Amino acid sequence: MADTTPAEVAELATQLRLACMRVSRRVRFESVDAVAPHQFSVLVRLAEAPRNPRELADIEKVSPPSMTRTVNGLAEQGLVTRAPDPDDGRCVIVSLTPDGREALDETRAARDAWMTSRVAELTPAEQDLLRQATLLLHRVADR
Rank of each mutant, 00 (worst) to 15 (best):
2 A>K: 03
7 A>N: 06
8 E>Y: 06
9 V>Y: 07
9 V>P: 05
10 A>E: 11
14 T>L: 15
14 T>W: 10
15 Q>T: 10
15 Q>N: 12
20 C>H: 10
21 M>A: 15
29 F>N: 15
29 F>C: 15
29 F>H: 15
34 A>F: 01
35 V>F: 03
41 S>H: 11
41 S>A: 13
42 V>F: 04
43 L>Q: 00
44 V>I: 09
46 L>F: 05
48 E>L: 07
51 R>C: 08
52 N>V: 01
55 E>P: 02
56 L>Q: 00
57 A>D: 00
57 A>S: 04
58 D>I: 10
65 P>I: 07
66 S>T: 11
66 S>A: 15
67 M>Y: 01
67 M>W: 00
69 R>F: 05
73 G>W: 01
73 G>H: 02
74 L>N: 00
78 G>Q: 06
86 P>F: 04
90 R>L: 12
92 V>N: 07
93 I>M: 07
99 D>L: 11
99 D>M: 12
102 E>I: 07
102 E>H: 12
104 L>A: 01
104 L>W: 00
105 D>H: 10
110 A>H: 02
110 A>F: 06
113 A>P: 08
114 W>S: 12
125 A>R: 01
128 D>N: 07
129 L>M: 07
131 R>V: 08
134 T>R: 09
139 R>S: 11
141 A>P: 08
142 D>N: 14
142 D>E: 14
